[in-house]
Design a protein around this nucleic acid. Sequence first.
DNA 1: CATGAATGAGCCTTCATTCAT
DNA 2: TATGAATGAAGGCTCATTCAT
Lengths: 242, 242, 242, 242
Amino acid sequence: MSTLTPKQQEIRDRETRILEVARRLLDDSGYLGLSMDAIAAELGYSRGTIYNHFSCKEEIIIAQAIRTMNQRTNMFRRAASTSGRPRQRLSAIGVAAELFVRLHPDHFAVEQLIRSASIWDKTSEKRRRAMHLAESQCMAIVAGIVRDGIAHGDLTLPDQFSPEDLVFCLWSVTFGAYSIIATSDGLEAHGVLDPWYAVRLNINRTLDGFQWEPLSTEFDYLAQFEQLIHDVFPEEQRQLFG
Amino acid sequence: MSTLTPKQQEIRDRETRILEVARRLLDDSGYLGLSMDAIAAELGYSRGTIYNHFSCKEEIIIAQAIRTMNQRTNMFRRAASTSGRPRQRLSAIGVAAELFVRLHPDHFAVEQLIRSASIWDKTSEKRRRAMHLAESQCMAIVAGIVRDGIAHGDLTLPDQFSPEDLVFCLWSVTFGAYSIIATSDGLEAHGVLDPWYAVRLNINRTLDGFQWEPLSTEFDYLAQFEQLIHDVFPEEQRQLFG
Amino acid sequence: MSTLTPKQQEIRDRETRILEVARRLLDDSGYLGLSMDAIAAELGYSRGTIYNHFSCKEEIIIAQAIRTMNQRTNMFRRAASTSGRPRQRLSAIGVAAELFVRLHPDHFAVEQLIRSASIWDKTSEKRRRAMHLAESQCMAIVAGIVRDGIAHGDLTLPDQFSPEDLVFCLWSVTFGAYSIIATSDGLEAHGVLDPWYAVRLNINRTLDGFQWEPLSTEFDYLAQFEQLIHDVFPEEQRQLFG
Amino acid sequence: MSTLTPKQQEIRDRETRILEVARRLLDDSGYLGLSMDAIAAELGYSRGTIYNHFSCKEEIIIAQAIRTMNQRTNMFRRAASTSGRPRQRLSAIGVAAELFVRLHPDHFAVEQLIRSASIWDKTSEKRRRAMHLAESQCMAIVAGIVRDGIAHGDLTLPDQFSPEDLVFCLWSVTFGAYSIIATSDGLEAHGVLDPWYAVRLNINRTLDGFQWEPLSTEFDYLAQFEQLIHDVFPEEQRQLFG
DNA sequence: CATGAATGAGCCTTCATTCAT
DNA sequence: TATGAATGAAGGCTCATTCAT
């Protein structure tokens, strides 16, 4: 049932290629560097052909964002399926999150852009739902691990504080850190030694603050961090660090 | 001596008004909604008049960002000058940070924008220095409180972790949280109960994780939070919550 | 093999039409009267269409100048291929030169314009080479005739004076005369009877001064002049004198 | 009667200064570099003040052109008042002409510009007459020398060829040569050895062609040329050759 | 379907000129 | 008279989108 005619396959392939080029252009030269012309030229297609796949520029941008979000979900899924106690698996998610923001520096700038009325309004309802779904899946994975931690008796959350609240906070610090790194040239000049290391350490102390066991005094999460990059995300590591 | 002629005063006033309008346009419709035409029309002035104040569009954007950053610094300064033990004063900074990001939802989108080469390059060196300074001042205030905590014996930082590293992490979570809130409509639908509350609680647990005394089990920072909004930032509270 | 599709032909045609309109606008109202808007409006095309042919205003101006220079070269070539002794063929070139400057009154104003840095710098290297080539070809034709004269024993040049030096002088007087005619309305009021006739006579006396045989006392170059206009440049004559 | 109040003197001085600045701007950066703003800034006056002297930009340009033309007339007058036989005095005029075009490379580009409808039409009748007069005076001086030559029996002009016709031709070659030099970078590349020398030699041969005595075989005009630069136009020589 | 020429709204910027102070 | 802020027409150019071939 899911077999595609060669023609349909070709169309789907091209769509993928369009989104990949769109992402590269966004990463390289920001939103202003993304033009239909540039996409078409890069792919060797004509402007009109692009419009046969996407009805307007905004649709491309959003489809690309969704694609990127799904990649993030995949990374999170891989991290979640590692073995170990829940907090150790959460740490693996931290690895995934860090790698993701480093691989897609402008992803959130694009997400912010998308929400601005002028773009969001041009989008189809279908696309908007797809985006919401992509977000949910990702959060559900992490929240599942938090719930595992509670179920194992490793963690007790405060009142008025859901597993999703914790996920949100962890995600916030990771994303926020990257955004600041991306926008403030010369964090070192401000006295920050190694922002990436700082965030990792900070997250561990946070989880310690929540009394999630094993505490960082009992298990060396930072050492595990390096190991996971290597073991679970070899491809991403290669892309980032050569 | 520093008295201005009425004319000069009017000019200075207009400069402020231009930046305010620029901010509103940026907030409303993003970078693409900010055009010299729109600013002029909004203010009832002609295009040329705007150019008598700012030599190009980019200068306006950056001047506006600096203005906003200085407002942040002022809020931080007010927070830092409250009484209490260092961690309590840091908590006041947290109040300032939260209020700031809520008051200026698009500020960081603008900051990200500014760093893109195409804009940054059109700016005068003077403006660039002003921006760097604005950032430094803000961070210095917070780092000062961290150092106070260390000096009081309330806090000991891990090796390889500077006061600025801590400031950076706290700032990351605050900024990141807001960015996510701004881009994900319907966090509640994802299961996040109250993101703002979650961040506050999260920060407290983080500082507990660093063993910064008094711990949140010894002092009710969340109650203090509400109090500070009311006492130190009445004006901002009014703007935000009516 | 070199056949063009109708579409391509149309495009090429339009390119020609753009340059023609550009020339008319330059003639009518000078450089300041030449605007992309005006060209588009005149042709009934949109701004964007013009930019599909020429990447900027300057390219149009230069392309137009090259086109005109090539017309000059063609006229010179036709003149050079007349029969007769070298000085008689040079006289034919004089005819061509006079007709050319009368047909293209503002050509040199445009050339002067082009050299001003602000325009020259925006041009592609390719275009610049094309222009240099167009100049060279023209001068080479005339210098060839001078060399023929020397080879025939009709002419001996002074020391330190190349065939090109002579070409340069002849060209100077022709071009200079036209420029003055164009800028001084009412030369007659100053006592100049017929500037065109004066230049022709002057050139003949100059060549007499160089002892280029047959001298103007031996051959009636001025009578030949009228004849050549009629015989070699009937089309140009029609354009100029109806 | 011609005494001016100090106030009037000041006004006249300023007008002169405005025209001088206008000329420098024209020479330096062409017509497009001449803006009311630039003039005002250069002089330290305000825009409005400039308008108290000249009703529009075009009036400045034309007034400047007239001023330059009068300088030419002065140079010609000095040349004409040297001693010697008429052709020798004409040679002195040639010196003046060459020095003038070298001192004011863009003068004729400006003159051509002025004639274009868009500028000429904005000019007062008075100004137009002043311009015509300036031209006449200059030509009259040279024509006077030609008439002297005829009166001395040194020269006989052909039929249908007035003294003014000769003046016109001589002026044409001088001006034309300079224009070409100014517009064709790399005349040497085209094979022209020394355009200035070529023109001088060319003019002598032309006058020989007219049998104006003493012929260049009888008197070394080129040697006299160098002498005259030094003796009659020391100031101009200094400006040009340092 | 693919193409790419054509469109035209819209942007940033310049600058001659005016006029209130 | 001098000033210089304000004006607004005009220009060059970009780019998403359409549509005839």
